[in-house]
Amino acid sequence: MKKIYLRRTAKIIAFILCFIVVFFALNALFSDMYSTRVRSFYHMEKDSIDAIFFGPSQSYCAINAQKITEEYGISSFDFCADGQPLVMTYYYLREALKRQKPKVVGVEISKIFNTPVTAERIVYSYSAMPLTVEKYNSLKALHDGDKTKAFEWFIPLFANHSWWNQINPFLLVKDLLSDHSAEYLLRGFEDNKAAEPVEIEFLNGGGYGEIQQIPDYSIDALNDISELCRQNGIKLILFKTPVAADWTINDSKTVKEYMSENGFTFFDMNDNLDEIGIDPETDFLNKLHLNTKGANKTTDYLVRKLKSLNIF
């Protein structure tokens, strides 16, 4: 009798083991290969970064972390994500602090008024992140506390299983075996050489827009970020890149008022377009993003500004 139970238990355990093996294999197959930014971050040496920049794509297209590291000697990283809202920044920061001890954190606040998080962006931003509590909590926060959805996005196999009609195992193997060191050198920065002329409304006397209130979720996130930086002795600065297409003069005014009332260090680079030397003909990839030329100018300005504020 006992023998039957033992054999049965052994069979069940063997099944569970097979299940786990197949699960992990499929999980690797369905992981996203394209979120290079996240992958690069985990390749940096521990405790080697002094300045981390967060924010949406505007940020990783505008702040050339490689330049700051190589030319100015300040080890930096653009730990940004597409459409990154402030609540995601908070959890990204928590995740970052597990591996790094930065002295400065810069947060780009283009998304302070809304959180346009789509499924696509979540894939990009989270797939390559290891399975940590921060990842789970951040997914939960992005889905208004929905635990089921958070769990689904947490595990790449569940999140991306619908790619079964596109998946190519050969590409995966090729990607695993290829050399990504060029990518790591960029330190999260996106190198775009192409240029498209854009119109900057501020320069033509326009772009006032409606008056918006800063949503509560952004205020909460800012407070969380600020508290986290304070606890870790990090200097926090908030800024807006010199991209005017998703920004209005009234937005700028609202944010500046809020920031100064609450003791945040904030500057809007749209106020200093001449000083930065932004040329609408050559410095933009598209109306929402700078290209590398524009980014280099912006980066130089940023370093100067931070030095003048005694942050660098």
Partner: peptide, 18 residues
């Protein structure tokens, strides 16, 4: 059994992307 379970996990229509 494994085919059944993983068919549901991979081909099942669930999740935000479906």
């Amino acid at each position: 059994y494994l085919t059944i379970v993983f068919s549901i996990i991979v081909f099942g229509a669930y999740g935000d992307q479906v």
